[in-house]
Simulated scan of single mutants.
Amino acid sequence: MDFSEDELHRYSRHILLREVGAAGQARLRAARVLLVGAGGLGSPLALYLAAAGVGTLGLLDHDALELSNLQRQVAHATARLGQPKVDSAAAALRALNPEVRLELHHRRLDADAAQELIPRYDLVCDGTDNFPTRFLLGDACHLLGRPLVSAAVLRFEGQLSVFRGHLGAPHPCHRCLHPEMPPEGLVPSCSEAGVLGAVVGVMGTLQATEVLKLLLGIGEPMDGRLMLWDALAMRFREVRLRRDPGCALCGPQASIRDLSAHRAAAPLACTAP
Rank of each mutant, 00 (worst) to 15 (best):
Y121M: 00
A50I: 05
V33Q: 03
A51G: 12
R237A: 00
S255H: 05
V202Y: 04
A26H: 11
L137W: 05
V187R: 05
M227D: 02
S189G: 15
D126F: 02
L65H: 07
P44A: 06
E5I: 14
L49D: 06
A38S: 06
G42V: 03
G82V: 09
R175K: 09
R237W: 14
H262T: 11
P245E: 14
P252I: 15
Y11H: 11
A30Q: 12
A52C: 09
M227W: 15
C190L: 07
P188N: 11
E7D: 09
L34C: 00
G201K: 03
P273I: 08
G197I: 04
A254Y: 11
A248V: 06
Q73P: 14
R120C: 11
L117Q: 02
A30L: 07
R164V: 06
L28R: 06
V149D: 01
A23D: 07
G217T: 04
D63A: 15
M227F: 10
P170K: 10
M227K: 08
A193R: 10
I118M: 00
R120P: 00
P84H: 10
V202S: 07
R242T: 10
N69F: 15
L16W: 08
L16F: 11
P188A: 09
R32Y: 07
G217F: 05
L93F: 02
I256V: 15
V153F: 06
P119V: 12
A92K: 03
L93I: 03
R134G: 01
N69M: 13
H166N: 02
P98F: 00
A79G: 04
E116S: 15
V195N: 00
D61V: 13
L206P: 09
D258E: 07
G145K: 00
G194S: 07
A90F: 09
A22F: 14
A30V: 04
P221M: 01
A64R: 15
D223R: 03
V86H: 09
A50D: 04
D63H: 14
H106P: 13
L41V: 06
T128N: 03
H174E: 08
A233C: 02
H174C: 10
G138E: 01
L70V: 14
Q207V: 03
Q71L: 06
G21Y: 08
L16D: 05
T205H: 08
S150Y: 11
D110H: 15
A46P: 03
D112G: 15
A31T: 09
G39S: 06
A75M: 08
R120I: 00
A77G: 08
G145Y: 04
